[in-house]
């Protein structure tokens, strides 16, 4: 079974969705994330083990390569696609046993901002690293973040802004969340923001790439 976990981790890392998928060429004709996940479950593997021994391993590898500019958005999207193919089989099992997940992450692009490619990459990467992700989409107000926070009291909130014109909204949202719930952890990201801005507005963490968010969440969860 260890061999299957390792094969599935490779499928996630290299974005092999299923046997029929032409990408990546070096995996041509081989089973993909779809077939291997089904096979693992049929052989008695638990959803938690598939997540920790294959999905998280593969997503972490692609996350590090993305941070190091060894791969780019297309390859990460393919890995995420392979991962979500595997998760189709695992999610119903997680619902039966919530402890398989490491925690919950609420994410959204701030009010007034519609840019979501970066936000989506973070959501995919965090989900593939073993967290439940509540994606509130784009143009998300403080009220929406806080309503989701009420439903998930232990969740970390992450938000993104691409525009300098929406950084002010980010500040307003973070301050409102922190005023209502001082202990709620909030992390921020997006092209124009940085560590100094995170400190200024009272956010707990700024990360320039998705893997940084995963590492922040892992540190919070441990």
């Amino acid at each position: 079974m260890e061999q299957l976990y390792s094969q599935l981790a490779d499928c996630i890392e290299f974005g092999k969705i299923n046997q029929a998928a032409p990408y990546p060429p070096q995996f041509k004709g081989m089973p993909g994330a779809d077939e291997l996940t089904q096979q693992l479950l049929a052989e008695g593997a638990s959803a938690g083990d598939i997540l920790s021994k294959a999905l998280i391993i593969g997503m972490e590898k692609i996350g590090v390569k993305f941070r190091e500019n060894k791969v780019f958005v297309p390859q990460v999207l393919m890995s995420a696609k392979a991962m979500s193919t595997a998760l189709v089989y695992l999610k119903p099992l997680f619902a039966q046993n919530g402890s398989d997940r490491k925690g919950t992450f609420i994410i959204g692009t701030v009010e007034g901002d519609l840019h979501d490619i970066g936000k989506n990459l973070v959501a995919m990467m965090v989900e593939g690293n073993g967290y439940e992700v509540i994606d509130l989409g784009t143009d998300v107000t403080a009220e929406k973040f806080m309503a989701a926070g009420k439903e998930h009291p232990d969740a970390v909130i992450g938000m993104s802004a691409l525009l300098t014109t929406t950084m002010g909204n980010m500040e307003k949202i973070v301050r409102e969340i922190k005023a209502a719930e001082p202990n709620r952890k909030v992390c921020i990201g997006g092209a124009p923001v940085n560590d100094a801005f995170a400190k200024k507005i009272g956010a707990d963490s700024y990360n320039p790439d998705p893997q940084g968010v995963v590492e922040f969440l892992n540190a919070m969860a441990s």
Binding site: P74, Q75, L77, I117
Partner: peptide, 11 residues
């Protein structure tokens, strides 16, 4: 669609 196109590069 941006995500579709980026995956089309490979698929």
């Amino acid at each position: 669609g941006m995500e579709n196109l980026l995956m089309d590069f490979m698929m």
